[in-house]
Structure formats: structure tokens, C-alpha cells
Amino acid sequence: SFQYVPVQLQGGAPWGFTLKGGLEHCEPLTVSKIEDGGKAALSQKMRTGDELVNINGTPLYGSRQEALILIKGSFRILKLIVRRRN
């Protein structure tokens, strides 16, 4: 089963996490790295392996390109929903 975790990061880029996968690579869009001391790490809500399913209220369909555009369009606040295996 899965758990959906809301994450809100503040203060602008860099957000402190790296993505891998996506439709382009025929795999889920997941968090591959969280930078020590970065905003994602400080939130204590994101983990490597989390799947990104929503950015700023926009549902994602797995495209890494789409996710990067939405993330780049976030100035002060980035709201994410990640899906994690229980």
C-alpha cells in the first residue's frame, strides 16, 4: 500500500533534491537524492525513493520534463505531494 505525503518547501530554489526516471525512461518519477542541509532535507518530509505525483496542485503523469518546468516556475513556495510505499 502507499502513503501520500504533502511537502511544502519555502524560500526559493535550489530546493535541494534531484529527480530520476519519468515516462521518458519508462519508470516512475522519483527522488534520487536529497542534499544535506538543503530545503528538502530541512523539511524532514521527503525521502529518496519517493515518487512525485503532484507539484503546486498540478497532477503529474510521470514526465520528468513537465515536472522540471513546474519546479522551475516555483518562486518562493514549492508544494509537492509524494507517494511512498508503506
Rank of each mutant, 00 (worst) to 15 (best):
L42Y: 09
F75W: 09
E66W: 07
S74Q: 08
Y4P: 02
L9V: 01
G11Y: 01
L78D: 06
F75T: 15
Y4D: 11
P59Q: 14
P28N: 08
I55H: 00
K20R: 12
A13R: 08
K20L: 08
A41Y: 12
L23H: 09
S1W: 04
V7H: 08
A67H: 04
A41R: 07
L29K: 03
N56C: 02
G21I: 00
G21V: 00
R85L: 07
G62D: 08
G57H: 00
E35S: 12
R47D: 05
V5F: 13
F17G: 00
P14N: 03
I81Y: 03
Q8F: 15
F75N: 15
A13P: 10
E35V: 12
F75A: 14
G16M: 05
I81P: 05
N86L: 10
Y61G: 15
P59V: 07
P59H: 12
V82P: 00
N56L: 02
K20E: 14
V31G: 04
K33I: 11
F2E: 06
A67Q: 02
T58A: 10
Q3C: 10
P6V: 14
P59C: 09
R76T: 13
R83C: 07
S32G: 15
I77S: 15
K45Q: 10
D36L: 10
R83T: 05
I55A: 02
L19P: 07
G73S: 12
I34D: 02
M46L: 14
V82Q: 00
G49W: 04
L68S: 14
G62L: 02
L70H: 12
E35N: 09
G38K: 03
W15V: 04
N86K: 15
N56S: 03
L9R: 03
M46C: 01
L52P: 08
R47T: 09
L80I: 10
G62M: 00
A13E: 12
A41S: 11
G21R: 00
T18V: 09
R47P: 06
G37A: 08
R84W: 04
P14C: 04
R47G: 07
K33A: 11
E66C: 09
I77N: 13
I34A: 02
I81S: 01
T48V: 15
G49C: 03
V7I: 14
L60F: 06
P14W: 04
S74M: 01
I69H: 14
K72P: 03
V82L: 13
G37C: 08
G11H: 03
Q44K: 12
N86R: 15
T58V: 13
E27H: 08
G49L: 00
E51M: 04
F2S: 06
G62I: 04
L78H: 04
D36R: 11
I55K: 04
D36W: 09
P6S: 14
L42N: 11
K33S: 14
Q3F: 12
S63H: 09
L80V: 09
Q10D: 14
A67D: 05
G22T: 01
P6E: 15
G62V: 04
E27F: 06
E51C: 06
N86E: 12
S32Y: 08
L78M: 10
F75M: 14
A40D: 01
K39W: 06
G22D: 01
I69M: 15
S1G: 12
L9C: 11
A41G: 09
G21D: 01
N56D: 08
G38F: 02
Q65S: 13
I81V: 14
G49K: 02
L68D: 15
Y61E: 15
T48N: 13
E66Y: 06
G16S: 02
K20F: 07
R47Y: 09
L52G: 03
E51G: 03
S74C: 12
L78Y: 00
R47E: 13
G16Y: 00
Q3N: 11
F2L: 05
L42K: 12
E35G: 05
L68E: 15
L70C: 08
L23C: 14
L52N: 01
G38T: 05
I34N: 02
E35C: 10
Q10H: 12
